[in-house]
Design a protein around this nucleic acid. Structure first.
Length: 525
RNA sequence: GGCGACAUAGCCAAGCGGUAAGGCAGAGGACUGCAAAUCCUUUAUUCCCCGGUUCAAAUCCGGGUGUCGCCUCCA
């Protein structure tokens, strides 16, 4: 366990507090997940990434984390959508739960320990409501069950409003069935054609808020450590959860309430009702998932984050800088030895780690934490200009780099490989050989054929052109062929045959491969 | 109408009482056969405005102005 003095901003107390879990060394957290009637949009992605990062940092500190994220799979919007599409509601939501995981996986969001669904917790929910009824906090009216808000003295403590404020600002049409306009539904009587479950109050389904109370209680118990979600859940969702849970258990529901700010478009909240939302997968068509993740973490989680393509492009460039540095670091490691010139780098690595931790300890300030990574990248890049590289120092920097990227959930993909690219590369190699043959440079042509053969690409010349066969895995083949092409270009450069060298570089660019000449040799990406 | 948040360079964004991080963009220079990448220098006498507290304020207090959010489903 790392020593820490983590402070988190608690919506409940409206200030930063020292973070102390109820059980030493173990953090229990619950994060409100999506209602699954569509693909997730960027606004949904923010809390997912933010709380995943918080979880990763807690784990980095050495805590055991029990992470629960629910799916709301029984809901009006799901039912409506399913009716429109002539589908079963639960089928529809199951589909979007699948799709949710596809998106979350691409963003490198770790799976929760438990992903409870409403549809699978009817008994827990019903028992919870029964308990409230027994305690006098709930009442039934014609198959509906409501929570008596006025019976719960602390109502409003999370969102900071009084019952009178709520009444004066009420925009809701008063439902005559309720005893009090503020009361909210715990259980809704089934309408015709709706999914319904049997209950002591007849066929019906749960209200929205009760699921989180019942499921968090079931998996995390009383007074769990962190309850998270978007800021728009503070009222009424979380307020109502508190009322239900605390009325029943007579214990605090959660110790720390964390809420992330909104994604905005032109300064306006991105939301389904405004229709100004972007589906995550639309964005992932244009941008690497890691760029999106990096962008989401480049601002403090409680601040609003404005979205447009340009901002993603900036994030992309920034991440690229880190990525270049990280890969050049690995490249430098190949020929590193033991030299006494790495003290500054080692110190920088250590400084980076401590600044990163300090930033994260201050209410998960990822924006500041990322800045420490940029500082390390600069030191690494500077050190890489040395002719003698010290392995131990490079490894120290690499370890910090990797540990911290792991916390952020950023993974740098290695060389992108695909069969299509492999084909293009081989065709390029063949055309280069053809060029040599045309120039009667048979030495080079044969050299190329032999080297390719060793690599697993067998060329066969025929009157119709050159055919080829492959032996081996795509990834290995690509690495080897690149090695050969770079070697070929190196030869040309030595002979000051720059037109050929540049032609090779340009052709590679067309395939989507960029060459970089460094003191340690040429690398590609 | 009630409640709340925020305003920092061309853009994004930290800092939240001790004399303005970081990224992107721009300018100049270095390296390079040319590129790419990288490095160095440079870019806010000042943090929306006006008062106040303090030896000291972007940071605290009061008053404006502007933007946004919640009070209805929302992450």
């Amino acid at each position: 366990m790392r020593k820490n003095n983590l402070e988190v901003y608690n919506t409940l107390t409206k200030k930063k507090e020292s973070f102390v879990p109820k059980e030493e060394g173990h953090v229990r957290m619950y994060v409100c997940g999506p209602t699954t009637y569509n693909f997730i949009h960027l606004g949904n992605a923010r809390p997912i990434v933010v709380f995943d990062t918080i979880r990763r940092y807690l784990e980095y500190l050495g805590y055991k984390v029990t992470y629960v994220q629910n799916f709301t799979d029984v809901d009006d919007k799901i039912i409506n959508r399913a009716n429109e599409e002539g589908q079963e509601p639960l089928q529809l939501s199951a589909k979007y739960i699948d799709e949710y995981f596809k998106d979350a996986d691409r963003l490198k969001v770790k799976r929760a320990n438990i992903h409870p669904k409403v549809s699978e917790h009817m008994e827990d929910i019903i028992n919870f409501i029964k308990g409230l009824e027994e305690k006098g906090y709930a009442y039934e009216v014609d198959g509906d069950v409501y929570f008596s808000v006025r019976k719960f003295a602390d109502y409003g403590k999370l969102s900071g409003r009084s019952i009178d404020d709520l009444l004066s600002g009420a925009r809701v049409e008063v439902d005559q069935k309720k005893n009090d306009p503020l009361d909210f539904a715990l259980w809704k009587k089934a309408k015709k054609g709706e999914p319904a479950w049997p209950s002591p109050w007849g066929e019906g389904r749960p209200g929205w808020h009760i699921e989180c109370s019942a499921m968090s209680c079931k998996y995390l118990g009383q007074e769990f450590d962190i309850h998270g979600g978007g800021y728009d859940l503070v009222f009424p969702h979380h307020e109502n959860e508190i009322a239900q849970t605390e009325a029943l258990t007579e214990a605090p529901m959660a110790r720390y309430w964390l809420h992330n700010g909104f994604i905005t478009i032109n300064q306006e909240k991105m939301s389904k009702s405004l229709g100004n939302f972007f589906l995550l997968r639309e964005i992932l068509e244009k941008f690497d998932p890691m760029v999106v993740r990096f962008y989401l973490l480049s601002t403090h989680y409680r601040s609003p984050l404005d979205f447009d393509n340009e901002k993603l492009e900036v994030a992309q460039k920034g991440l690229e800088r880190l990525k270049n540095s990280y890969f050049q670091l690995n490249n430098g490691l190949k020929n590193a030895g033991s030299f006494p010139n790495g003290d500054k780098l080692k110190a920088a690595a250590q400084k980076c780690r401590s600044e990163f931790e300090e930033a994260m300890n201050d209410d998960f300030n990822t924006a500041l934490a990322i800045a420490s990574l940029f500082d390390l990248a600069r030191e690494v890049n500077t050190y890489l200009k040395e002719t003698d590289l010290d392995k131990e120092s490079l490894l120290a920097a690499k370890e910090v780099f990797e540990d911290l990227l792991q916390v952020l959930g950023i993974v740098f993909a290695g060389h992108e490989v695909s069969d299509k690219k492999l084909d293009e590369l081989i065709n390029l190699a063949i055309s280069l050989r053809q060029k040599a043959r045309a120039a009667k440079d048979f030495a080079t042509a044969d050299w190329l054929r032999d080297r390719l053969k060793t690599a697993g690409v067998i060329l066969e010349d025929s009157p119709q052109g050159t055919n080829w066969k492959l032996e081996g895995e795509t990834k290995e083949l690509m690495e080897k062929i690149m090695e050969i092409i770079i070697e070929l270009r190196e030869k040309a450069r030595k002979n000051k045959d720059y037109p050929t060298a540049d032609l090779i570089r340009d052709n590679l660019k067309d395939v989507g491969i960029t060459l970089e000449d460094t003191p340690q040799g040429t690398t590609w990406k």
